[in-house]
Design a protein around this nucleic acid. Sequence first.
DNA 1: TAGATTGTTAATCGATTAACAATC
DNA 2: TAGATTGTTAATCGATTAACAATC
Lengths: 211, 211
Amino acid sequence: MNSIPLPSLRRLPRYLNILESFQIKGKHTVSATDIAEELDLKPIQIRKDMAFTGIVGKPKVGYDINELIKSIRSFIGWHENTSAILVGAGSLGTALMGYEGFLTRGLRIEAAFDTDTSKHGTLIYDTPVYPMRELSKVVQRKNVHLAVITVPVSAAQSVTDTLVESGIKGIWNFSPAEIQVPEQVVVKREDLSEGLAVLFVQMQEMKHSGK
Amino acid sequence: MNSIPLPSLRRLPRYLNILESFQIKGKHTVSATDIAEELDLKPIQIRKDMAFTGIVGKPKVGYDINELIKSIRSFIGWHENTSAILVGAGSLGTALMGYEGFLTRGLRIEAAFDTDTSKHGTLIYDTPVYPMRELSKVVQRKNVHLAVITVPVSAAQSVTDTLVESGIKGIWNFSPAEIQVPEQVVVKREDLSEGLAVLFVQMQEMKHSGK
DNA sequence: TAGATTGTTAATCGATTAACAATC
DNA sequence: TAGATTGTTAATCGATTAACAATC
């Protein structure tokens, strides 16, 4: 068992969501079947996925909810804060800075950068906005390794180059651009049009089936 | 060959991105190898994916770019406008309303709904905002089948119920909530924390490998 | 023509699911 | 104890990749 399969990894945050709701309800243990019912998955898949995070359940009892939450969160790296910067303080960038959920999921946006001079020196949801030329300095001073890109497609590659030069190791790319990076830099694409394509085709298929 | 595999479907918008950039450069044909190089995929995978959209290439020549774009766009359903409403005109909802890319991808947000009375009657990027109680009426009058949800987790299920009652057939859910719907309604989750989990773990793996 | 590229058929790979012994 | 639930080992399924004949 080497590294976790991507589909399993993607399910982990969903497990957390419902585990936390169980926790709020005062439950202390949970079985794979309980989770599977909530998410419309098979219990065996839950057990397999859980195994990747290293947690061990008890036959007949199930898993300890607190332990399970802790185990998943630390597997994902959500048990501690990771600093990030955000480039492109437009409407999407602003929305992301305003999303409190990131804080409980290990992501702390320390600073934002934008070309719009009218934004420089301002705070957006407590996050200071700087001019682009400050980027390298801030990244290095704050020892940041992660960047969120919310710039237009036309700017994505040049921003990426600047980020890589400054020492950024991971990029969360919200632009639909296909950015090129050296192989030691991780890029996670977050292209909304992928989701839109899936939704459209599935609706089409539903229409032409049992309905 | 029944319906397209999900991974293939998710790659189609990426093909479109780079096909359009080829088109702008004045190219007329493209081979699977050309596309594969841009996206870091294998040519055979491109050919398999293309086959699902129904397009036929010419040996030795490749695919006609205009035809390919048309073929993919109409396969996804991006060749015509689909009306949608948006529920939750907060910062994320606002960002989505302001995203022009949706218009070229078949999605037209006709109206937004929010509980905040101060927003009622206003326009956000040309989209009118209505009180929640108007929802059913607008959905039925405009014959809308698709809804975008950008409300807090706590409101997601009740909003979903209202949407389903009004006759909505597809939901693009940007809240991390696990909403329950009847089986003839399609839900596409767009939970950002999934992407965050993938990014964090991949960065971790990169750190503990060749670096 | 010869070489490049497609589309098809078969092989491989990886994820999901099933079966079941272990156990609290 | 008996029944429920885990974790492991094996079987199945589906997507990716390889091989190659067809062809412009």
